[in-house]
């Protein structure tokens, strides 16, 4: 069973073995409004925690997706290129952005659980 983690930048990570599937949360897609474009990374790119990996755009805003942890891009969800609306329809499901190979598993410990994340959102409103 995959383990879920959440970042303060509103990304979720679903971890299975040494692979993390990363996307933006339901809350984040709602804040963004209608997503019109997603620009993903390239397979094989290395990222450090906090580096910009992808861009998600609504009509009037562009937001960076930061890598929550260090990692190597294993897979990119190319469906989002042709169907960015999927982010609004199924943010935490089919609309994942990319899969990362986890390099430093201990980085996961500073991320939040779903309960903590929900508390975090409630407080920041």
């Amino acid at each position: 069973m995959a383990q879920e983690y959440f970042s303060k930048d509103h990304e979720y990570l679903r971890v299975s073995g040494d692979t993390a599937t990363v996307g933006i949360t339901l809350h984040a897609q709602k804040e963004l409004g209608d997503v019109v474009f997603v620009e993903g990374p390239e397979i094989g790119q290395h990222f450090k925690a906090g580096e910009a990996v992808a861009v998600v755009e609504s009509v009037k805003a562009a937001s960076e997706i930061y890598s929550p942890i260090d990692g190597l891009i294993l897979e990119v969800n190319t469906v989002l290129e042709s169907n960015p609306a999927l982010v609004n329809e199924d943010a935490e499901g089919a609309a994942w952005f990319f899969k990362l190979k986890i390099i430093k598993p201990d980085q996961l410990t500073i991320l939040m659980s779903r309960t903590d994340y929900e508390k975090f959102i409630a407080e920041s409103i």
Binding site: E57, S58, V59, K60, A62
Partner: peptide, 12 residues
């Protein structure tokens, strides 16, 4: 496609 432009993307 104005997210390419300076008034939204600023330094990017």
């Amino acid at each position: 496609l104005s997210t390419r432009e300076q008034h939204i993307r600023r330094e990017k």
